[in-house]
């Protein structure tokens, strides 16, 4: 159980959507209590991912569904919370992470005869590195639903502390374990 008042969290895209879609009353209650104390903090990179996702969904949607996709996109943009940008410090940490971890820890995703291309997987991995760097620099715990990627990043930082002086550890919160 994570105390919702215990401090602001940086929300990865995977956590934000999981928490928003959960049908568990306890999860809903946890999120409501979190929001009474803190804003949702997101990396600007998460917004890039999200808006690209809405745009792709809109492109692929039938004409009669596009208005709903657009309404969802507008609703998302209306409650962005606090957006954490990429500054010089974040860029330095992200560059170190990209050198330490050039390859994603897991293969491209597959589901129902659909596949993620290797290029897409690498892009997603680099987005995750930028988000982890943002969490480190802003000294916020990162809430996520993507343990494969973020645990790999946390481990690399722990193994190479000399590359991240005065930083870390990367503190992770898995959203499925908040209650």
């Amino acid at each position: 159980m994570i105390d919702p008042a215990s401090g602001p969290l940086l929300f990865d895209a995977s956590a934000e959507s999981w928490l928003a879609r959960s049908r568990e009353p306890a999860v809903h209650d946890w999120l409501a209590r979190y929001l009474r104390h803190h804003q949702v903090n997101v990396s600007v990179v998460t917004i890039v991912q999200r808006i690209r996702g809405y745009a792709l969904l809109w492109q692929r949607a039938a004409e009669d569904r596009r208005a709903a996709v657009e309404a969802a996109r507008v609703a998302y943009l209306q409650q962005l919370g606090r957006v954490r940008g990429l500054d010089a410090g974040t860029a330095v940490v992200a560059g170190e992470l990209m050198a330490l971890l050039p390859h994603p820890p897991t293969p491209p995703r597959r589901a129902h005869q659909l596949v993620e291309s290797r290029e897409e997987r690498l892009a997603r991995w680099r987005f995750d590195l930028l988000i982890a760097a943002t969490a480190l620099v802003t000294r916020m715990r990162l809430i996520h639903n993507n343990a494969e990627d973020f645990e790999a990043i946390r481990g690399a930082i722990e193994r190479s502390p000399q590359r991240f002086p005065g930083m870390g550890p990367l503190e992770l919160v898995r959203c499925t374990l908040v209650v």
Binding site: S14, R50, R52, L57, Y76, R109, R110, E116
Partner: peptide, 18 residues
């Protein structure tokens, strides 16, 4: 923002393009 979408749609919104 997230209701009314399938699991696959949400993967796309989360940055996973299949």
């Amino acid at each position: 923002a997230f209701g009314g979408f399938s699991d696959r749609d949400v993967m796309l919104l989360d940055g996973i393009v299949l």
